[in-house]
């Protein structure tokens, strides 16, 4: 991304709460960050995790619990949630990277299901109801996050920092090696890269940022719910990345906005939403594998 693109994104982000309902905008940004973190893994490393909800939702629970029970500030809560997701990512990564391709997806899904059941059964998670009444609190002790604009700009700042981090990672030598592994793993090994460690690093980074997204969401919405850790959420983040364009920097953002927006528009039709999400999946996989940003980039390149 060049300087003009960055400035455009920042200006749009700063003006957005005056055009869009801030709470919706914050939800969009949380899911956009989640999808960007996921894309780091699927789009840039070629690893399909079917368990990212565990990091997203797990961090939401930990953050929500930390600020409620230990009376920590929102930033500390988010950091603890993020750290938890990173640690969990390390455990999942070490286990799942032992198997390839399709097995990788199944293992991450099964491991995430353990976290789901823990969130359902543990004494501090509120069972079926989840955590409720998580306080937003004061950022740095003096910025009141109960004011919508304060909350929004905090979320936007978190999003931009993480987005920049992902951009840096993708455009670093590390990112280049990731692409090399995705394109031709055997060759990357023969060039002397310790492929497993690099994959693990990508996995942990992706899990950590997914955790930031989930923890932030729990502060914004003041809840952590079972939906956040369920396999539906793992599936949705895949769809967001796919719709927007995997392996593109802005694709997951566009995809998250599309899917979350769609769910808001369709919230009145009940579980037909699941059918529509499923159909979107099918259509994307069959005819739209590059995603929106991917297709646009291709058209752009073709016409010049």
């Amino acid at each position: 991304m060049n300087r003009i693109a960055w400035i455009t994104v920042i200006v749009l982000g700063l003006l957005a709460p005056f055009a869009v309902y801030p709470v919706l905008m914050m939800e969009l940004l949380c899911f956009a960050l989640f999808a960007c973190a996921f894309n780091l893994l699927l789009g840039y490393s070629g690893l399909l995790s079917f368990g990212h909800a565990a990091f997203f939702g797990g961090a939401a629970y930990i953050c929500g619990y930390a600020v409620t029970a230990w009376h920590l500030g929102p930033l500390q809560g988010i950091l603890i949630g993020t750290a938890f997701a990173g640690g969990l990512g390390l455990v999942f990564g070490v286990l799942a990277i032992r198997r390839q391709g399709i097995y990788f997806a199944m293992i991450t899904l099964a491991l995430a299901q353990i976290i789901f059941f823990l969130c359902l059964k543990m004494p501090f998670t509120g069972g079926e109801d989840g955590l409720q009444g998580v306080p937003r609190g004061m950022l740095f002790g003096f910025i009141d996050l109960n004011k919508p604009l304060n909350m929004y700009y905090t979320v936007f700042a978190i999003f931009m920092i993480c987005f920049w981090l992902i951009w840096r990672a993708v455009n670093s030598p590390f990112g280049q090696v990731l692409s090399a592994i995705r394109e031709n793993e055997a060759r990357a090994i023969s060039l002397g890269y310790s492929v497993e460690r690099i994959k693990l690093l990508a996995f942990v980074l992706s899990a950590t940022l997914a955790g930031t997204a989930g923890a932030t969401k729990s502060i914004v919405f003041q809840t952590a719910s079972l939906t956040d850790v369920s396999w539906h959420t793992s599936g949705e983040v895949i769809l967001m990345t796919l719709v927007g364009g995997m392996g593109t920097l802005l694709g997951p953002v566009v995809g998250a906005f599309t899917i979350v927006g769609l769910q808001h528009e369709l919230s009145s039709i009940g579980s037909w939403v699941t059918v529509i999400i499923g159909l979107t999946f099918i259509v994307c996989v069959l005819v739209f594998r590059r995603g929106m940003v991917g297709e646009l980039t291709r058209l752009w390149k073709r016409s010049f």
Binding site: S271, T274, G278, F281, I282, V285, R289
Partner: peptide, 17 residues
């Protein structure tokens, strides 16, 4: 091969919904 997994995931969602 991952696309096959994703496609059948979509089919599963449609049926379940």
């Amino acid at each position: 091969h991952l696309y096959g997994l994703l496609l059948t995931f979509g089919v599963a969602l449609v049926l379940q919904g």
